[in-house]
Design a protein around this nucleic acid. Structure first.
Lengths: 243, 243
DNA sequence: GTTTTATACTGGTAATGACCACATCACCAC
DNA sequence: GTGGTGATGTGGTCATTACCAGTATAAAAC
């Protein structure tokens, strides 16, 4: 049994969270009941304050749910593409057993115009990569992405790199950058003619326009504008009740 | 100054939250500093435990943010839905300082057909409420929702109940049910004529169709089909990199 | 002047002890 | 059988106390 190190500089409730997550992921099933709070106090020599704080965070993170008077239980695992975690087209398609292909339609270095500069929190005129990729899964067009990446942060990216590997893999392996967070904003839009053609859908089908801002710390390392075909792509998200 | 009623059956931290929200919305600006936790303790005669619990909930709900060593501040108002937490139209609109109204267009108890039964993991023929609500914020139509709720779990719901309070408030106060989790699936769709009329938008503007499954433990307590007008609603989500 | 130190704020972590509210079940009275 | 009733286990709320960890500032030392 893992133990709590009371002399560690890591807060006790964090340590307990890690122990419990490990327990949940490796030894428990959905809807299994956790030991009661008081049992956990006993077992690890912690106060109920600390135990409740740990469990409260786990609840917030979607690992468990509580029922007053009954107990605390392992939350059902998330299904499908879940927006609550970081998303990579390449990774996700592999997970679904499909063959992901990136077709780089254009690739250039441009000077950021006013809009791009504002979106990326940079100065107008800063050099940025701009590349358009058509993403296919098993040869079916799924997404049309226009991506902007600061040139000064990641010099030497070539078109071929993007065709062979995912952007995130490249940032990690070539530049040692592992994005910490991303924000996506999406809204339904009428599909434009040129987009419809590339995605091989009729214009009558609306698309989902997704703006993505990817951060490493507080620096934006990627700004992407995606058109996702509305007939094939569905977004799924799990919301947790924070009370 | 509003006071805390220590004899109320409403938890003190909830009462404090309401007071603080009121304060924030009516007398404070973005990034204004709140009184320190200890000051609030003093002012309302509460323990720091309670004050911290209230503030912690406000932080989760996006009202405030904290800075260690400095203070607690009013969070910037976001205009967007944040999918990372549980969402209630009523609550969200209040948070944005808008007046939410639910216009119940129809209300009946029906027998679940095959589709509804499958979606709700119930048997065909089970009686369920079906109600259609047009949700408005400051008199502007925002959403058109068709909701299904099992009748046997929540007997005695009336049309008027839905007009006066949020569904989640009702489930909680009348039936003691506090949903633990919700799952949403959304896709862009062409706005139907009747929907366009109710939402007061032209059919050319695509809408977002959102299916929502709300769970209490492993029981589905609500299945809702929403049409959100694509010109006004934008969904925003934060993705964290868990690696 | 600059740098260091003290100190007095802020929120963060933690233990302890008490009592409340809800769920379950065994038991008893009817 | 049905309906209470009480015991017991669960999570929920709350006060009190203590100390830790960042932040800012002003006093002291250089």
């Amino acid at each position: 049994m893992k133990k709590i190190d009371k002399n560690s500089r890591i807060p006790l409730y964090i340590q307990l969270m890690e122990i419990l997550v490990d327990e949940i992921e490796n030894h428990m099933e959905e809807n299994d009941q956790l030991p009661s709070e008081r049992e956990i106090c006993e077992k690890y020599g912690l106060s109920r304050t600390t135990v409740r704080q740990a469990i409260s965070e786990l609840e917030r993170d979607g690992y468990v749910y509580k029922q007053h008077g009954k107990g605390t239980y392992v939350a059902p695992r998330k299904v499908n593409q879940n927006l609550a975690r970081f998303y990579s087209f390449t990774e996700e398609m592999k997970r679904l057993g499909k063959k992901p292909v990136s077709n780089v339609l254009s690739f250039k270095v441009i000077e950021a115009d006013k809009k791009i500069a504002r979106k990326m929190k940079r100065n107008e005129g800063d050099p940025v990569y701009e590349f358009v990729r058509l993403r296919l899964a098993d040869d079916i067009p799924m997404l049309l992405e226009t991506t902007y990446v600061p040139h000064d942060l990641f010099p030497g990216i070539r078109k071929e790199d993007l065709e062979s590997m995912s952007l995130y893999d490249m940032l990690r392996t070539r530049f040692g950058v592992k994005p910490t967070m991303a924000e996506e904003v999406f809204r339904p839009v009428v599909t434009r003619d040129d987009e419809a053609k590339l995605l091989q859908i009729p214009v009558e089908i609306p698309s989902l326009k997704v703006e993505r801002f990817t951060y490493d710390g507080d620096i934006i390392v990627e700004y992407t504008n995606t058109i996702a075909r509305g007939d094939l792509f569905e977004y799924r998200v799990r919301l947790d009740n924070k009370n």
